[in-house]
C-alpha cells in the first residue's frame, strides 16, 4: 500500500498523504477549485463542518468503491480516499448549494459593511462576492441585537456573527480557560459570556484574528481607518509570552493596529499575545522587518490606494487573471 492517495478535483489530480481532507488537497492544487471555508480553520483543532460553504460533490468514492456519495459533503472534514473524484467549482449542484448557504448566512446579517471595521478583510464579503447571488427573496425581519463588549479591548457584534465557533475553539485551545461560548440554540444562538465579564487571558485577542467576519473586532482600532488604507509591515519584538512576530498596520507612520501574521488562507501562522497586540503601539516597541504584502487574495493585497511611494506593487499569482464570475 502506497503512503499517498490520489485524488482528482475538478479534473486536476494530486497525490496527498493519508488523512488529508478534500479541502486541504484542493488548497495544495490551488486556484478556483479551492472551496470557500468560513468555519474551518486549520490551526484550530475540531473546527469545521458547520458553515457548509465548502460542500463538494464526490462523484467517485474511491478506487475500491467507486460509488458516488449521494449527498454533497463538507470538504473540510471529509478525508480523501485513494482514487476519489471530486467536483467543486465545475459542479452546478455545488454552485447552487453554495449560493443557498451564502444566502442563508446573509439573511440575518446586518449588511452594515460601510461602518464595519472588518470590511476589506471580511470572509463573508468575499464569499458573497464569489459565491452569492445579487438578490434575495428575504422579506422577513433581520435579527437585531445590541453590540456588546468582551472586555475592554474586544467589541462583540452578534448580528454579524455566523457562528463558526472559531473563537470558542481559540479560547479553549489557546487561553487555558474559557469564559465565553455559544449560548441558546437555533437562530437565537449567540456568542456570549452570559454574565457580564471581561475575557481575561494573555491570548484572548486572537479571537479577533480568527473571526471571519466583523463580529469580534479590535476596539483599539475601532473606526480608525479602512483597512485598505493602512500600510502593513512585518515586525517583531522579543516577547516572553509569544513569538513576538506580528504585522503592524500603520496610518501616517503611526501604529494603528497589531495583528498576527496570516497565510494565504487567512489563517494565523503563529499566535500572538495580548501585550503585543494591544499594548505595544509605539514604533520604538518594534523592529521592522519588511513591507508586507498580505498573502491572501483581497482588496488589501495590492495596497493600491496607499499614496506611499514606497509601496510595492506585487502581482499575486491568480489574482487579476482570475476575475470573479459575472453576477446574475
Amino acid at each position: 500500500m502506497s503512503d499517498t492517495l490520489k485524488v482528482t478535483i475538478d479534473g486536476q489530480s494530486i497525490q496527498v498523504p493519508m488523512g488529508t481532507s478534500i479541502l486541504e488537497a484542493a488548497r495544495m492544487i490551488g486556484g478556483k477549485l479551492v472551496p470557500p471555508a468560513m468555519c474551518y480553520y486549520k490551526p484550530l483543532k475540531g473546527s469545521g463542518g458547520k458553515c457548509r460553504t465548502c460542500l463538494v460533490a464526490v462523484t467517485q468514492g474511491s478506487e475500491k468503491d467507486p460509488r458516488p456519495m449521494p449527498k454533497l459533503v463538507p470538504s473540510c472534514s471529509t478525508s480523501v480516499m485513494d482514487g476519489m473524484v471530486v467536483e467543486s467549482a465545475i459542479s452546478e449542484r455545488v454552485t447552487e448549494a453554495r449560493q443557498s448557504v451564502t444566502e442563508f448566512l446573509l439573511i440575518n446579517h446586518p449588511l452594515d459593511c460601510p461602518v464595519c471595521d472588518q470590511a476589506g478583510e471580511c470572509k463573508l464579503q468575499d464569499l458573497s462576492f464569489e459565491h452569492g447571488k445579487s438578490f434575495t427573496n428575504y422579506k422577513e425581519e433581520r435579527r437585531d441585537n445590541e453590540p456588546d463588549d468582551l472586555g475592554d479591548k474586544i467589541k462583540l457584534n452578534v448580528n454579524r456573527c455566523i457562528l463558526c465557533y472559531r473563537c470558542v475553539y481559540a479560547a479553549e485551545q489557546l487561553c487555558g480557560t474559557r469564559d465565553h461560548g455559544v449560548l441558546y440554540r437555533g437562530d437565537h444562538a449567540e456568542i456570549s459570556t452570559m454574565i457580564e465579564k471581561s475575557l481575561d487571558s494573555d491570548f484572548i485577542g486572537n479571537v479577533i484574528d480568527v473571526c471571519p467576519v466583523g463580529a469580534l473586532t479590535d476596539k483599539t482600532f475601532r473606526f480608525r481607518s479602512r483597512i485598505w488604507f493602512t500600510e502593513q509591515w512585518n515586525a517583531h519584538r522579543s516577547c516572553d509570552k509569544c513569538c513576538g512576530k506580528v504585522v503592524l498596520h500603520k496610518i501616517d507612520g503611526q501604529i494603528a493596529r497589531v495583528s498576527a501574521r496570516k497565510n494565504e488562507w487567512d489563517e494565523v501562522e503563529e499566535w500572538i499575545c495580548d501585550t503585543c497586540r494591544f499594548d505595544k503601539k509605539e514604533n520604538e516597541d518594534w523592529t521592522i522587518e519588511s513591507k508586507r504584502v498580505p498573502k491572501s487574495k483581497s482588496v488589501q493585497t495590492l495596497n493600491k490606494y496607499s499614496d506611499n511611494s514606497q509601496s510595492v506593487y506585487v502581482k499575486v499569482e491568480g489574482l487579476g487573471s482570475e476575475r470573479p464570475k459575472e453576477l446574475e
Binding site: T177, G181, L183, Y184, T193, M194, I195
Partner: peptide, 25 residues
C-alpha cells in the same frame, strides 16, 4: 438561576460557561 448554575459547575468541577451553554440550549 445563575446561583444554581454556578453551584453545579463547582459541584462537577467544570467551567461555569459549560453549564451556561447547556442550560440555555
Amino acid at each position: 438561576s445563575v446561583g444554581v448554575m454556578d453551584y453545579i459547575a463547582d459541584f462537577l468541577k467544570i467551567k461555569p460557561i459549560e453549564v451556561y451553554e447547556v442550560a440555555t440550549f
